[in-house]
Amino acid sequence: MEDCRPLGFLIGLPFALVALILSLLGAVVWVLGTVLSCLCPCCICFTGLANLAVSLIKLPVKVIKWFIHQIPC
């Protein structure tokens, strides 16, 4: 079903580039959150911050899939 949507992939690339930049930011936040949660395990907010960063890392793939599915076949 996704084979007939190559144009959606190409049009979605600029949005994926922005999402890629956000995912790199998420990777930095994840590393910092992981280090801080290891240093102070009593602060649960750092674990939530690391989970948010992981979702930012997965963002480019989600954006491309969402954009491809928005374009009719």
Rank of each mutant, 00 (worst) to 15 (best):
L36R: 14
F46R: 02
I44E: 09
L7K: 14
I11M: 09
L49N: 06
S55Y: 02
L10M: 07
L39W: 02
R5K: 14
L20N: 04
A53Y: 04
I68T: 04
S55W: 01
L20W: 01
L49C: 15
Q70W: 11
V18F: 03
C40Y: 11
Q70I: 12
K62M: 12
L22F: 00
A50K: 06
C38M: 10
L36G: 00
G12V: 02
L22C: 08
L52C: 15
L49Q: 10
K62D: 03
P72I: 06
S23A: 12
A16L: 12
V18L: 14
V29N: 15
V18G: 06
F9W: 11
K65T: 00
K62E: 09
P14H: 03
V29E: 08
I44G: 05
A27I: 02
L17Y: 00
G48M: 12
R5M: 07
T47V: 10
K58T: 11
G33T: 05
T47W: 08
A27E: 03
M1I: 09
F9C: 06
I64M: 15
M1E: 05
T47K: 15
A27S: 01
I71N: 01
L36A: 09
V28G: 08
V63D: 07
T47A: 13
L36K: 10
S55V: 01
C45E: 02
P60A: 05
L52F: 11
L39E: 03
I71H: 08
S55R: 03
P72Y: 13
S37G: 04
F67L: 09
A53R: 05
I68H: 01
G26C: 02
S23L: 04
L13P: 01
P6D: 12
G12Y: 01
V29Y: 08
R5H: 10
G26I: 06
N51Y: 04
K65C: 00
C40P: 03
V28A: 15
S23N: 00
G12K: 03
K58H: 07
L32N: 11
L22D: 00
L10W: 05
L49K: 04
I11V: 12
M1A: 15
F9E: 11
I21F: 08
L24M: 06
C73V: 05
G48P: 04
V54W: 01
V63F: 08
V54P: 04
A19N: 10
M1T: 07
T47Q: 11
F46H: 09
L32K: 11
G33A: 14
V54A: 14
F9D: 02
V28H: 13
L25T: 06
M1W: 08
S55I: 02
I57F: 04
P72F: 14
L52A: 14
P72D: 08
V28Y: 07
L25A: 13
W30Q: 13
V29A: 15
P72A: 13
I44C: 11
